[in-house]
């Protein structure tokens, strides 16, 4: 359904000078650095797959998605969605993909959500019958009806994201590209969106490519994970395979009343300790050592006053893959 073959995207980054003459001069100046945003990537995603595409900031995730959606042209290599080149057949491709950028809404900011839907309906030439069943279906799944008459700028972030997701589905595309759809959302909103995406994939058989920083998104949604760093794929496999490689990296921060005494025999699954006075940051593998077990352990080290669970950074995960 989605393929990338020896895909490259290089950007020339010029030193920009001020003013018009400066920008003209920098056009012709030889001074530039070549940034390989995407560096010889190949993958193939089958119909109905739900793939997590992860990596640190600037790894090339968005650049790949932008090439798949026809926004950017590859420096070399090619991409195809359903056999079509998004660059050569941009409009046809646009009709069969849905895109959500978590950072930027595609809705009409000052208009009620319904107006955005109506405009998109006309743009994608959706007939009345399909449009009405769309409204009904997405009211059921995302509860859109509650805020459909509200101007988009007055929606909460969670509502807006639901609106964006529905808007991306209005023309019933087979493929969905989601770029950080859960960014900035609270737990409840995230859970709702995950349930929706799961349903889309399982019941509606949509192929989904998801980029995220949230490891829980990956755990709960993706059967396959592609990890990229500095523009290169460093891991492409099932969720289980990734777990075997990196486990379930987790972080617990424990604040003690005084500097604790750590037992010499560390339990299995405890990977690394970081000390900040009387605070200890514990990196552990949740697939081996459960949080309650670890809690029992840490309370034997001293007297904890505060315990916080933290999500690991993507950067930490990348480190473990190497």
């Amino acid at each position: 359904m989605i393929t990338a073959t020896n895909l490259n995207k290089h950007f020339k980054v010029y030193e920009t000078k001020k003013g018009m003459m400066g920008s003209l001069a920098s056009l012709f100046s030889a001074k530039h650095t070549l940034v390989k945003a995407v560096d010889d990537i190949s993958f193939s995603i089958g119909e109905g797959e739900f793939v997590g595409y992860i990596g640190p900031n600037g790894a090339g995730k968005s650049t790949t998605i932008k090439m798949l959606s026809g926004i950017l042209h590859p420096t070399s290599g090619s991409v195809a969605v359903g056999g079509l080149s998004p660059q050569k057949n941009r409009k046809d491709n646009a009709r069969r993909i849905g895109i959500v950028f978590g950072q930027r809404t595609q809705l009409w900011w000052d208009l009620p959500l319904r107006d955005s839907f109506e405009i998109l309906k006309a743009m994608y030439k959706v007939n009345d019958k399909d449009y009405n069943s769309f409204l009904k279906l997405y009211d059921d799944m995302l509860d859109i009806g509650k805020f459909i008459e509200t101007p988009v700028r007055k929606l909460s972030l969670g509502q807006r994201m639901r609106g964006d997701l529905a808007a991306a589905m209005i023309h019933n595309p087979d493929v969905l590209f989601l770029d950080e759809p859960t960014i900035g959302l609270d737990v409840v909103a995230k859970t709702g969106i995950r349930a929706f995406l799961k349903e889309l994939n399982e019941n509606e058989k949509k192929t989904v490519l998801l980029t995220t920083h949230d490891m829980d998104d990956i755990e709960q949604l993706c059967r396959r994970v592609i990890v990229i760093n500095h523009g290169r794929i460093i891991l492409d496999g099932t969720l289980e395979e990734m777990r075997e490689t990196i486990g379930l990296p987790s972080i617990m921060e424990v604040q003690y009343t005084s500097k604790p005494e750590v037992a010499a025999a560390a339990p299995l699954g405890l990977e690394r300790l970081q000390w900040e006075d009387s605070k200890v940051i514990i990196h552990y593998d949740r697939s081996i050592l459960s949080a309650p077990q670890l809690l029992k352990e840490v309370s034997s080290w001293g007297e904890p006053v505060d315990i916080q669970m933290k999500e690991p950074d993507i950067e930490d995960i990348i480190q473990k893959i190497y």
Binding site: S69, I71, R90, K91, D92, A94, R95, I97, R104, Q106
Partner: peptide, 12 residues
């Protein structure tokens, strides 16, 4: 600000 992205994802 990269807003041109939003124009390129449409079939128009």
């Amino acid at each position: 600000n990269g807003e041109f992205d939003s124009l390129l994802i449409r079939p128009v």
